[in-house]
Amino acid sequence: MTARRSRHLATLDPVEVGDHVCWVTGPDEDFAGTARAFAADGALFGDKVLVIGSPEARWAPGGTARGVLVDPAAERPGWDAEAMLGLLRREADTACRQGFRALRVLARMDRVWPEGASPQEIARHELGLDSLVAGGAALVVCAYHRDAFRPGALEQAGAVHPQRLGGHRTPPAFRLFSVAPGCWGVSGVVDSEGAEAFRTALGELFARSATVRLRCEETEFMDAAGMRALAEATRAVPGRRVLLEHANETVRRCWTLLGYDHPLIPVELTP
């Protein structure tokens, strides 16, 4: 599998194994047609299709060996975002044993979180899912309906997917995604508009690991608000350490000028 990179998609046609797409959709879009075409591509590429949604949907798979439908409403109680991760791990392993190329997943996130979700819940779930997808056994599209999630939650969702499609009213300025075990890429601009989403995502990473590696080859710029979010998130969880790899000279100089190059802030910047 090629190295993962962030990108904006015009359609779902180029989605490939290892991709994790945030699809923000609304009532004015042909969700059913697009979803049906994405699921149908499973037969073309030799994928096993997993749909998380409603059995009444016109785009749901037809119950063949190639397609599996899970309705979260029918699985409750006991169904939550963590259960979804477990399901995807099991189905990806099963698809491999059955000889499929990969597991092709389309998830209606308003069915996973019927009451909506907080930015923290979204960051926790999607970062865990992105680690799974990065392993190369699946391609996943997470469909977020604009009417079912608050703007801050949608911003968080866009920030923790490497690929995005559709009508983000305010497209995420940055994206944070898995590039290797224990290592995360940061693309785009980390500024005042995305600082809170960046801080939230970092907090969820610190809950997983004592040392977090952030690769910045695709980071265009990080302003004072982004650096403050990084410093504060690191200090908030004692015993955590950040390696900011491939930070450009401007970022390294500003980090020092802002006084963050300090033993009490365990962040190491490397060129």
Score class of each variant (00 low, 15 high):
63 G>K: 03
27 P>N: 06
45 F>Y: 04
58 R>Q: 11
27 P>L: 09
35 A>P: 10
86 G>E: 07
50 L>N: 08
60 A>S: 14
85 L>I: 15
66 R>V: 12
73 A>K: 00
15 V>D: 01
31 F>K: 06
84 M>R: 08
27 P>C: 04
86 G>V: 00
26 G>P: 08
58 R>C: 11
73 A>V: 06
49 V>K: 08
95 A>P: 10
19 D>I: 05
35 A>K: 05
49 V>D: 05
16 E>I: 00
16 E>F: 06
88 L>P: 09
32 A>C: 12
95 A>N: 05
60 A>E: 09
83 A>L: 04
75 E>M: 13
78 G>V: 02
60 A>I: 02
18 G>K: 04
21 V>S: 12
84 M>H: 14
91 E>Q: 15
71 D>V: 00
73 A>P: 02
46 G>K: 02
79 W>V: 07
45 F>D: 14
55 P>N: 02
82 E>R: 14
41 D>N: 08
40 A>Q: 12
89 R>C: 11
17 V>I: 09
23 W>R: 08
79 W>L: 03
82 E>A: 15
95 A>H: 03
63 G>T: 03
57 A>G: 11
26 G>N: 15
64 T>I: 06
70 V>L: 15
53 G>L: 05
82 E>T: 13
58 R>K: 12
62 G>T: 07
54 S>N: 12
10 A>S: 14
28 D>N: 12
24 V>T: 13
93 D>S: 15
27 P>M: 01
83 A>V: 03
84 M>D: 07
39 A>T: 08
16 E>S: 15
47 D>G: 07
57 A>E: 07
24 V>K: 01
37 A>T: 08
56 E>G: 15
86 G>K: 04
22 C>R: 01
50 L>Q: 07
22 C>L: 02
23 W>E: 08
45 F>K: 03
82 E>Y: 04
10 A>F: 06
39 A>R: 13
18 G>C: 07
87 L>P: 10
87 L>H: 09
72 P>G: 08
67 G>H: 04
95 A>F: 03
74 A>D: 10
30 D>G: 06
24 V>G: 01
90 R>E: 15
75 E>T: 05
81 A>C: 00
81 A>E: 08
87 L>A: 07
83 A>C: 09
12 L>E: 02
44 L>H: 11
66 R>P: 09
87 L>G: 13
83 A>N: 08
37 A>H: 06
37 A>V: 07
93 D>V: 11
15 V>L: 05
93 D>T: 09
35 A>S: 13
